[in-house]
């Protein structure tokens, strides 16, 4: 079906172009009219895939044990919404912490000072080398070995009061993320050609200005896409803070699930909200990448809206040419 539509537009476009000029130039060669290759394999595979999808949809639609009513009832439940809000909050805060610390670690790792570069290496080695789940539990149980947090004259308090579920979640996710962000930033900074730094230095720009005005803007093109992925990952990994009793989306929905006997239904609700949040941020990421692609290719990729408009005009052109 789509095959045929595509062919239609392809045929139509040259036709309109020709009509815009004053007909084919005298002596121009006749356009090729050939019978297109038939792709039977595509039809067969489409049918098989559609059948499988149909089976799955049917299984869910006809399962009378699923209380679809409960899914609808709880999607906008205030407890669920508050949980989704906390998921968003902890993910954003942990990500901010990860980005800031990650940039610092990347600069430390690339510095000529062997001490700072070694410390950054060791940090990355530990936090990338151990599971984030284990790290969350380490922070949560810190009071077992350090009952009192004593920062000399600055601050002193019981560790259990400091290490709330929120703090354990933030530190666990944020410090872990910093290790990954450090490597992403380092890769980005190193991807910029040395000639750029040389050109900036030759113009008399300082190291700091060169980094800020020349290197980082170019590194962003390499840094932004994986950072967006990291954030989407963070939104989902944040469900692990269930373990440190922070009441985010998964914990909120499961609590309802276990009391209302709608375990699966509440997991569906959680999925719906995770999908909503990740989808919204994917769109944001697309525009951010487009912003940093300036100058790297001759034409910026079209925005979704521009694509829709282009398709609409292509469609109307096709119609006018067939009429």
């Amino acid at each position: 079906m789509t095959d045929k539509l595509d062919k239609g537009t392809d045929d139509a476009r040259p036709a309109t172009v020709v009509s815009k000029d004053d007909g084919p130039a005298p002596g121009a060669p006749a356009a090729i009219k050939a019978i297109p290759v038939r792709h039977y394999g595509r039809w067969v595979s489409a049918v098989i895939v559609l059948a499988l999808v149909g089976l799955i949809v049917n299984a869910f639609a006809t399962a009378d044990k699923i209380q679809w009513q409960a899914v609808g009832d709880y999607v906008f439940d205030s407890t669920v919404l508050a949980g989704a809000g906390r998921t968003l909050l902890i993910s954003v805060l942990a990500m901010v912490m990860g980005v800031v610390l990650g940039v610092i670690l990347a600069v430390m790792r690339m510095s000529k000072n062997p001490v700072t570069s070694w410390v950054a290496w060791a940090y990355i080695w530990f936090f990338r080398g151990t599971p984030v789940y284990v790290q969350l539990l380490l922070w949560f149980n810190l009071a077992l070995i350090f009952p009192v947090l004593n920062l000399g004259p600055l601050y002193k308090d019981e560790m259990v009061d400091v290490m709330t579920p929120f703090m354990a979640a933030l530190l666990g996710l944020g410090l872990n993320e910093a290790a990954y962000m450090a490597e992403i930033c380092r890769a980005g900074l190193q991807s910029v050609d040395d000639g750029q730094t040389e050109a900036a230095h030759a113009l008399g720009m300082s190291h700091g200005k060169t980094l800020r005005r020349i290197v980082i803007p170019q590194a962003m093109r390499v840094i932004v896409p994986p950072t967006g992925n990291e954030f989407l990952n963070m939104l989902k990994t944040s469900s692990l803070v269930y373990a440190v009793t922070y009441n985010e989306l998964l914990r909120a929905t499961s609590t309802i699930g276990s009391t209302s006997y709608a375990v699966m239904e509440m997991l569906f609700v959680a999925c719906i909200w995770y999908l909503v949040i990740t989808s919204v941020f994917s769109v944001g990421q697309y525009y951010l990448e487009r912003r940093f692609a300036r100058g790297s290719s001759r034409n910026l990729p079209a925005t979704p809206w521009q694509k829709i408009k282009a398709n609409m005009t292509a469609f109307s052109r096709e119609r006018s040419s067939t009429v």
Partner: peptide
């Protein structure tokens, strides 16, 4: 200074 590979700032 003018370089062989120009080294203009692409952004």
């Amino acid at each position: 200074m003018v370089f062989q590979r120009f080294n203009l700032f692409p952004h």
